[in-house]
Design a protein around this nucleic acid. Structure first.
Lengths: 226, 226
DNA sequence: GTCAAACTGTCGGCAATCTGACCGGTGCCG
DNA sequence: CGGCACCGGTCAGATTGCCGACAGTTTGAC
């Protein structure tokens, strides 16, 4: 379970860090919203602890943007005591819970454990392949966070191919997977779909290989070694 | 917001149904615990109103089983007046609140609204999407502060769509969300509702995309960057 | 070099969707 | 009680945009 602390006050950040680490969480801490973005891009974070009063981009603005671009991380907001406005505003903008400063370490731990427990169950199944992510529940695919616009057939094909990474899939298996039972797809129809899908994927470096006479193949993703 | 009534007394069940429906909830009613299970399996239910005295499997037993297998729905238990034992027992077994019979409709509504509010309390009570704001507790939507005039169905559709931003929602999921379980909505009925809703939203620049063959999609709001 | 397999741009058919018109049901009001 | 307004569904004609056929070109195995 991985926690990101976004807090500019060094003393407080350090305290949070210690408390959580001792409780068995993996903790990262950054002082600004910009660096929080960077951290989210690099690592998979389960929970964000966000101070509202940040230098530069403030916590609310950042949270709003995060939700706006589809960020689903659980967020616990830290507010000044009595800042009821903050509290309401925070929940409106998409926080999952809030905690008023000052607070006891146990209080923090209680909230954090409640939130992480809850988050688990909800997350949907996602196929990842380098920069490509396919969200099965929502039927949406994205590359580097940018949503792809796919038609029904294209999506079905994408889902099927990337569910069978590192396996050669024959055209008639594809045909069976993306067309409804009774309809008969010509081999060429599949070639056309592949071609269309490639046009949308290859700009991002995602490749579908042709295996002459046998079918198509998606190779396991390899990070470039610079 | 979807409510399931588990009550074998037809008169009472009907009364509850009417009261809740008029208050804007989507309501299903079943007379036995077995059918309650079936309903939960088929549909996503937010709140269960459970009579303790049921034929066959009684309310307590059912509730216990529900919790036992991880059911997280909010449950409001109906007990006979003065059955203090029932009350204690009910709360022990996992009810979220109880109400002694007989009760006034307003009393019921007050409890129900308190409970449904609580369920949502952690995640925001208001969905914001650019200029659009949907107040879940009050069942009101507004654009740039101006209230929208929506019928019940339109509101339910709006709430459902914008609770699933960035996900493609199929027509039958919509149908399950905005209609009670016994009514059968034709695909066209949904198209018509979508069309009506669009007529009210698009003047404000809020768009509901069609994804041919799959369903509808609300994309995350993007602020214009000048 | 030969030839089958695969690629891809173009195009038309057609199913999916949109939407205006209509209508039966319900609740409110005088 | 009668009438009216509104809701929410069906129907049908117009519209849209996906998808496979076709065909000309390219690729790769031998």
């Amino acid at each position: 379970m991985r926690v990101l602390i976004v807090e500019d006050d060094k003393v407080l950040a350090h305290g949070l860090n210690e408390t959580l680490r001792r409780a068995g969480y993996v903790v990262d801490a950054v002082p600004t919203a910009e660096q929080a973005d960077a951290a989210l891009r690099v690592t998979e974070i389960d929970l964000v602890i966000l101070d509202i009063g940040l230098p530069g981009v403030d916590g609310f603005t950042w949270l709003k943007r995060l939700r706006g671009r589809g960020g689903e991380q659980t967020v616990l907001v830290l507010t000044a005591r009595d800042a009821l406005t903050d509290r309401v505003h925070g929940l409106t903008v998409g926080a999952d819970d809030y905690l008023a400063k000052p607070f006891a370490p146990e209080e923090l731990l209680a909230r954090v454990s409640a939130l992480t427990r809850r988050g688990r169950a909800i997350r949907s199944k996602v196929i990842e392949h380098g920069p490509l992510a396919i969200d099965l529940a929502r039927k949406r695919a994205s590359v580097t966070g940018k949503a792809l616009d796919l038609s029904q057939r294209e999506y079905a094909l994408l889902e099927f191919l990337f569910s069978n990474v590192d396996a050669i899939v024959a055209k008639d298996r594809i045909s069976g997977a993306i067309a409804s039972w009774d309809e008969q797809l010509s081999p060429n129809a599949i070639e056309v779909q592949i071609s269309r899908l490639r046009a949308k994927l290859e700009p991002s470096g995602i490749r579908i290989r042709t295996v002459r006479g046998l079918g198509y193949l998606v190779e396991p993703w390899k990070d470039e070694k610079p």
